[in-house]
């Protein structure tokens, strides 16, 4: 089944890098949308079909933590799996994001294969 992905990061360079890794990984991607913060991501989530969200944590306007809280409070959006992609590797932050409903956590720096494997794992669980 083709997947609709949403990549949320305030860094254009990181959004492009993640997009490149996904495109080169051979996933069956129906669409790949991008947002630069949580608020923009919510607009996309309410307007388009999204099967999987990859999000940064530290972003202006609305952080990844706030995005997860918003999604958790919405009956439709809370079903969409979220993978956090962040430089923040503290136990406290990882625990907090997983408690809020994140299904996966990839710490930057990462090798492209690690991101690919985590996406595969989360997508398989969702099917």
């Amino acid at each position: 089944m083709s997947t609709h992905l949403l990549v949320v990061d305030d860094s254009p360079a990181m959004r492009k890098m993640i997009t490149r890794v996904i495109e080169m990984s051979g996933f069956d991607i129906a669409s790949l949308a991008q947002a630069s913060d949580g608020a923009e991501a919510l607009e996309i989530l309410r307007a388009k079909p999204v099967d999987l969200v990859l999000t940064d944590v530290n972003m202006p306007i609305m952080t990844g933590e706030e995005l997860l809280r918003e999604m958790a409070g919405n009956g439709m959006l809370k079903r969409i799996p979220v993978v956090v992609v962040s430089t923040d590797a503290t136990d406290a932050r990882m625990h907090q994001m997983m408690e809020l409903g994140a299904r996966g956590y990839v710490v930057k720096p990462f090798q492209p294969a690690l991101l690919r494997n985590e996406l595969e794992r989360v997508m398989e669980i969702g099917q």
């Binding site: 530290n58 430089t87 923040d88 590797a89 503290t90 406290a92 932050r93 710490v107 930057k108 720096p109």
Partner: peptide, 17 residues
């Protein structure tokens, strides 16, 4: 961003930044 986050995470694994 990556260097800062990586350094802080290693220096204080229990912190929130």
């Amino acid at each position: 961003n990556i260097l800062c986050g990586a350094a802080l995470s290693r220096l204080n694994r229990n912190g929130i930044f």
